[in-house]
């Protein structure tokens, strides 16, 4: 493990404290706080939520309730590449589901199991990214891909795998 990895938790905790301070440790700012923390940690570990509850002086059950209500918050670690498939109406009528099926099949994922064991990919659906003109749409991290076909989507994944695992490829 690299030196940076050893103290990664320390850096993240510094950032978490700074985030809490930025929002004045105000319980009504719980949602933006969780958003910022998720940006930092890429997901919301339970221990972190417990700390947020402590720091904001609210019951942990309430923090958990908010974190599980909103679709954007994720309490499980996510892959390095988060693939979000738009399943809004426009994408749906233009056959977004076969894309999802192709991606899941390629990566061995299901509706319940959204992240690959090597933490490289997470595949999830979102209800409309507002890019309906480009339907169907797939977003990989922040990169939007429009008018995608199942083959195209799998090719994008292959490209990433080749880049990330040159030895295995």
């Amino acid at each position: 493990m690299s030196a940076a990895a050893t103290i990664k938790g320390s850096r993240q905790f510094d950032a978490a404290c700074a985030i809490l301070d930025r929002f004045g440790r105000n319980p009504t700012r719980l949602i933006p706080i969780l958003q910022a923390l998720q940006e930092e940690y890429r997901y919301l570990p339970g221990e972190l939520l417990a700390y947020v509850a402590t720091a904001l002086g609210v019951p942990p059950a309430r923090v958990y309730g908010v974190a599980t209500f909103y679709a954007h918050f994720t309490l499980a670690p996510r892959g390095k590449y988060v693939i979000r498939l738009c399943d809004g109406t426009a994408c749906h009528v233009k056959n977004s589901i076969p894309i999802l099926e192709a991606l899941r099949q390629r990566l061995g994922l299901t509706a319940e199991r959204k992240t690959t064991p090597d933490l490289l990919f997470t595949v999830e659906t979102v209800s409309c990214l507002g890019a309906c003109g480009l339907a169907p749409v797939v977003v990989i991290n922040d990169q939007v891909h429009g008018q995608v076909t199942p083959e195209h989507a799998v090719a994008l994944v292959e490209e990433i795998i080749a880049r990330e695992k040159p030895a295995a490829a």
Binding site: M1, T6, I7, G9, S10, P45, L48, A50, Y51
Partner: peptide, 15 residues
């Protein structure tokens, strides 16, 4: 303690 036992939030993970 209010919450049962937990692993805690890791900060430094020496090897």
């Amino acid at each position: 303690r209010r919450l049962g036992k937990s692993d805690g939030l890791p900060l430094i993970h020496g090897q």
